[in-house]
Simulated scan of single mutants.
Amino acid sequence: MSYNTLIVSKKAAIAKVTIDRPKKLNALNKEMIQELHEAFKVLEKDSEIKVIILTGSGEKAFVAGADISEFADFSVKEGGKLAAQGQKLLFDFVENLSTPVIAAVNGFALGGGLELAMACHFRVASDNAKMGLPEVSLGVIPGYGGTQRLPQLIGKGRAMELIMTASMISSDMALNYGLVNHVVTQEELIPFCEKLAGKISNNSPVAISNAIKAVNAGFMNNKNGFATEIEAFGASFGTDDFIEGTSAFLEKRKAEFPGK
């Protein structure tokens, strides 16, 4: 499948999705949101793909915000629809994807770009990365989950300050805040993420999918995380992956998970 705003490549059990609008610093627009949805949907159905790495083209930006020209003249109704559709199509979709998604933040991740990185299951940043939610400087607020996911990741007080000041923080500060898991050089970013992805791909994809559901449930007001965990734990005993994993452990060999 070909895309206008993305480059999708595969290597063994790892897929890499590269956002490719370098002249616009990979700014997020409607077409990109739709194409990202389609790309993630296709990759989730690919049984050979165990991990997805999401990054931006070039060395300047992961995604340097949304394309403001697309919504500068929107009405109240149109603005609400923009946020609702974007969250459903992409941000919530990625967060709840059964295949793990690692954000390789290779430069500016601002506004919708940071919101996209936060929707991924975890983040690794290059040492030149800058992150922030500058929306209030435009007279609007983060609309793709930023006011919800940022406090979950770094705490309410720090999130309030970052949103209200519209400030950017460095990758080192993001690491200190817990916004990213690791900081590496630009050259090491993709190889480091591929190494992490390799470790993940050695494990049961069914168990990982259930773990994602259980962890996410703990952050949803209408879900009981503990109950979700108990249910998913019990269901694990009925999977081929459980049979293979326990058999491999007892037989002292490497597990070859069928993903069922």
Rank of each mutant, 00 (worst) to 15 (best):
V94A: 08
E231D: 15
L175G: 09
P134Q: 01
K88L: 10
G65Q: 04
K195S: 13
L54F: 08
M32N: 05
G198C: 12
S98C: 05
Y144L: 15
E48L: 09
Q186P: 02
Q34S: 12
L175D: 03
V140K: 00
S171K: 06
Y144T: 10
G234T: 15
N181C: 04
A64S: 15
V136H: 01
E135P: 01
E31L: 13
V101Y: 10
S57T: 09
E59Q: 09
L25H: 13
E78F: 05
A232K: 14
A232T: 11
V180C: 10
V8W: 00
E115C: 07
A129P: 01
K156Y: 13
R21H: 07
Y144E: 05
L89D: 14
Y3E: 05
L153I: 15
G79P: 06
G112A: 11
I190F: 11
D241L: 12
I68M: 11
R123G: 03
G112M: 02
A197M: 14
Y177T: 06
V180E: 03
A129D: 05
L90Y: 05
V124Q: 06
N106F: 09
A117F: 03
E161R: 10
A214N: 02
A104G: 09
K30F: 11
N128Y: 00
M1E: 03
I49V: 15
K50G: 08
K88F: 12
L175I: 05
E78H: 06
G259C: 09
A232C: 15
I68D: 04
L179S: 05
S236G: 15
S57L: 04
K254Y: 11
S201E: 04
G79M: 15
L6P: 07
I243K: 13
D240L: 13
V183L: 04
G139I: 00
A166Y: 03
K260M: 06
L116S: 11
I243L: 14
N181L: 12
K30R: 12
P100Q: 12
G111Q: 01
I208F: 00
S171V: 03
K10D: 04
N106L: 02
I190Q: 02
E31N: 06
G234S: 11
K45M: 08
E38K: 13
F226H: 12
L162P: 12
E35C: 09
I7K: 11
G238R: 01
A248D: 03
N202E: 15
T165M: 02
G113F: 03
K10V: 13
A159Y: 08
V63A: 15
Q148H: 03
A166W: 00
F62T: 04
K24A: 14
N210T: 08
F249W: 09
M164V: 02
G86N: 08
K60I: 12
V136T: 09
M173D: 15
G234Q: 14
S69H: 09
A66Y: 01
T147W: 00
M32K: 02
E115T: 08
A125L: 06
G132Q: 04
K50D: 07
T99N: 15
E135T: 01
I169N: 03
A227T: 12
K50N: 12
L150N: 04
M131S: 02
I52L: 07
V180P: 00
E95V: 08
G143F: 02
D73F: 10
S236N: 11
K45W: 00
F62C: 04
K213T: 12
N221A: 13
L189D: 09
